[in-house]
């Protein structure tokens, strides 16, 4: 879809009261998810995971093993979905693509001088173009937080818009790195900016900065998606990344998406978890729910 917006069409973002957000979030955390809804929810979570490795020490071996796991989460338990995608550096996209083949698992690549984004625009464009050429289905770009905090919003806007053009058919996820934006007001403003500049998804974090995907931050971003949808009828995806390492937290995120956006968003087309260790905890919970026995991590593979 061609982006029709320009920087001048960006609306004034509403203010966000942090204490109010915390209260609201605590209500999601109090939802009690039991029996069927728990099993369905856990499977949904698995299917929404972007299984991720983003390290300097990533090697073909590591990526190969992770890709295998992405498709074979726990083969001894039939009926499990695959994860949604694997998420790697541009240099690993070609390899990952050859591993996931036609499994349905997508390959997402970070780009734009991930994680800091401190590079000139032409470098970012080259970075992104390379990943797309290598076959990336999805691009996870970072915004220029320094420019954002310096008030150069138009710069940030234009950068996203240009990367979007380079993406072609690949879907663009825009990482706000909310841990560096400091306030929920900034998170909201950056969300609106990214959405209007052409993001298909907005994503909380690189995973390199704490705090990452807190529910408060995800809530704030979801409300930006909600308002955009109400305004335009266009759905935007959401990806909390970093810090969601257990099933309970993941389920609470689903509750939040369901109540704020609706069931339409509860597929991996519109909602993802960026995580590396979440999958095994979800698997253990699924087995626990199925067998009634608490599980040991020794029985779940680490790749």
């Amino acid at each position: 879809m061609k982006n029709q917006n320009n920087f001048n069409s960006l609306p004034l973002s509403p203010s966000v009261d942090k204490v109010g957000v915390e209260e609201r979030v605590s209500r999601f955390q109090k939802r009690s998810i039991k029996t069927n809804s728990k099993m369905d929810g856990l499977k949904m979570v698995l299917n929404m995971i972007d299984l991720t490795t983003l390290e300097g020490k990533d090697t073909p071996g590591k990526v190969r093993q992770m890709c295998y796991k992405a498709i074979h989460l726990h083969d001894s338990f039939p009926g499990l979905p695959t994860v949604a995608a694997v998420c790697v550096y541009p240099s690993m996209v070609g390899l990952a693509k050859s591993m996931v083949k036609d499994s349905g698992v997508k390959v997402a690549s970070v780009s734009t001088a991930f994680p800091s984004g401190q590079a000139p625009l032409d470098v970012k464009i080259t970075d992104t173009k390379y990943a797309v050429d290598q076959g990336a289905d999805e691009i996870d770009m970072v915004i220029s937080r320094g420019k954002f905090l310096a008030g150069e919003y138009a710069f940030v806007f234009d950068e996203i818009a240009q990367i979007k053009e380079v993406c072609g058919q690949a879907r663009l996820k825009v990482i706000l790195e909310t841990g560096e934006l400091a306030t929920l007001d900034n998170v909201r403003k950056a969300s609106d900016l990214a959405i209007y500049a052409g993001a298909d998804f907005i994503k909380t974090s690189t995973g390199k900065i704490q705090p990452a995907a807190t529910m408060q931050v995800t809530y704030t971003m979801l409300m930006a998606i909600r308002d955009y949808y109400d305004e335009t009828g266009i759905m935007i995806g959401m990806k909390p990344a970093g810090g969601i390492s257990n099933s309970k937290l993941a389920l609470h995120n689903l509750v939040m998406v369901k109540e704020l956006l609706g069931d339409e968003w509860l597929t991996n087309e519109w909602f993802r978890f960026g995580a590396s260790s979440l999958a095994n905890d979800v698997l253990m919970q699924i087995l626990k729910t199925d067998t009634g026995k608490y599980q040991s991590s020794d029985y779940f593979t680490i790749d």
């Binding site: 998810i33 029996t35 069927n36 809804s37 929810g41 299917n47 698992v105 069931d263 597929t267």
Partner: peptide, 14 residues
């Protein structure tokens, strides 16, 4: 890959 689930409802939790 994307299969639209039926609506996700909360089971009773008495």
């Amino acid at each position: 890959m994307t299969s639209k689930n039926k609506n996700w409802e909360y089971s009773p939790s008495l």
